[in-house]
């Protein structure tokens, strides 16, 4: 069966900020959905399916996604679903739902706040509950163990990591939706102490609050989805090759490949993971990696992945022939989603 052509008709995000205390869930969702629908030239009544991504442990509030629906105007009742994941996976569900053929417009949104609690602590609960969660191993420690493997196998140097950080900060500072990062040259960054050896502060994500929304439409123009796929590796960090991201490579292939791609927005919270993904997906230096700054200067939980797809869509809207939006879930790039977008 031929797949229906789905386009990204609209995109909106709240500026990723150190805190969005003024907004509750419903207010975040109200604003981004209204703006994304306006961007798409559509109305709420046009939406046939709605799917959201968020996480109660991040928000510290059981069933926080049900509060968020107050931002949607869900009356009369709507067809609605939710994933306890980054909004990129909500978009995957919406894409599949549009393939059913009975509705043509889907609304996808996500929201998350790092400022409410400890995202690092929350991440320890996503690990295997038998062998890992009781050890409370934090995401920076996991990333540092991955980084050491890359460094000791000669796949990257600390100087290269610092250059990735410099570039992410510089690009992030040009992005009105990322918070300001202090810029410094690579030598100055390398003079800083380790946070988790061999990672320094510049290698780590800046935790932010934010929300984003994408409107999908069958037909109607705008960046077309060549393909979208997500694939998962094994969970245990000691049972897979942490220097590679096999599932990211497979997902890119399943999403139609990188032909014509000139921009890749990669959901890599750590400098090391930019390098791992770039290599795993076979992206050469002709591909602009994370012109938005990526997930290092602005890493909003449950949002940073969907924002990568939105930024890739904006790159296509502004002239790129094709772009990759990538999202990751779990620890150490275990689960990867790739959406390849192309100009019509």
């Amino acid at each position: 069966m031929a797949l229906r052509d789905v386009h990204i008709a609209g995109f909106a995000q709240l500026p990723n900020s150190h805190d969005l205390d003024d907004y509750d869930e419903a207010e975040m969702v109200q604003e981004i959905t209204e703006r994304a629908l306006a961007d798409a030239g559509l109305r709420r009544e046009d939406v046939g399916f709605t799917c959201s991504g968020s996480n109660d442990y991040v928000m510290g509030r059981p069933f926080s996604f049900t509060m968020a629906i107050d931002g949607l105007g869900a009356w009369p009742p709507i067809r609605e679903s939710h994933v306890e994941m980054d909004g990129a996976w909500a978009m995957y569900e919406a894409y599949v739902r549009l393939q059913h053929g009975d509705v043509d417009v889907a609304l996808v949104y996500c929201f998350g706040k790092s400022s409410l609690g400890s995202v690092d602590k929350v991440h320890t609960y996503e690990l295997d509950p038998y062998s890992l969660a009781p050890l409370q191993v934090d995401p920076h420690s996991l990333a540092a163990m991955q980084a050491r493997m890359l460094l000791e196998q000669g796949l990257i140097t600390e100087a290269e990591l610092a250059h990735i950080a410099c570039r992410a900060r510089r690009d992030g500072n040009k992005n009105p939706n990322a918070p300001h990062s202090d810029e410094a040259d690579a030598d100055a960054l390398l003079a800083q102490p380790y946070v988790r050896e061999p990672l320094r502060a510049h290698d780590l994500p800046t935790r932010t609050d934010g929300a984003a929304c994408i409107v999908l439409r069958v037909g109607g123009g705008g960046p077309r989805i060549r393909g979208i796929a997500h694939i998962m590796d094994q969970h245990q960090p000691g049972s897979r090759d942490l220097t590679d991201a096999v599932s990211a490579r497979q997902a890119l292939e399943a999403a139609g490949g990188a032909d014509g791609v000139t921009v890749a927005e990669l959901h890599a919270p750590y400098t090391t993971q930019v390098a791992v993904l770039k290599r795993a997906m076979g992206l050469d230096d002709e591909v602009a990696i994370n012109p938005s700054g990526g997930a290092i200067p602005a890493c909003t939980p449950m949002v940073a992945g969907l924002v990568r797809i939105g930024e890739a869509a904006m790159a296509v809207r502004h002239g790129a022939p094709a772009a990759i939006g990538h999202a990751t879930s779990g620890s150490l790039l275990q689960h990867n989603l790739v959406c390849v977008l192309e100009a019509e």
Binding site: Y23, A26, E27, Q30, E34, W75
Partner: peptide, 8 residues
């Protein structure tokens, strides 16, 4: 902050 019926 947002009307749950109207979404405004």
């Amino acid at each position: 902050g947002s009307c749950p019926l109207c979404g405004v």
